[in-house]
Amino acid sequence: MSEWQRKNPLEWQTYVNKEVKVTAAEKHEYKGWVLTIDPVSANIVLGKLMEDGKISVSVILGHAVKEVEIGNEGDDEMKEQLAHLFMPEESKAYGQ
């Protein structure tokens, strides 16, 4: 089990709502805002706003994570958007 997979939920929570660069197996790299980290699988869920207004969600599997670098912290508006992204009742209002 990697160092990343061994972290506890409080450590993982420090990454939520931050912009990160994840280096994964086979030198794949991912950038985006951390939406959550599954405490069971250590999978990292990243969100990225696209130019067409859609949101691209990328998930890096916990076993494939090599390194996570923290960049910017989201402002309050960004945090609000990220927090409600998957909530069914909010999704309709999201695009308004």
Partner: peptide
């Protein structure tokens, strides 16, 4: 899932 490095979708 052990064969997967990442997955991506759009909302």
């Amino acid at each position: 899932c052990s064969d997967i490095i990442s997955y991506t979708f759009e909302l």
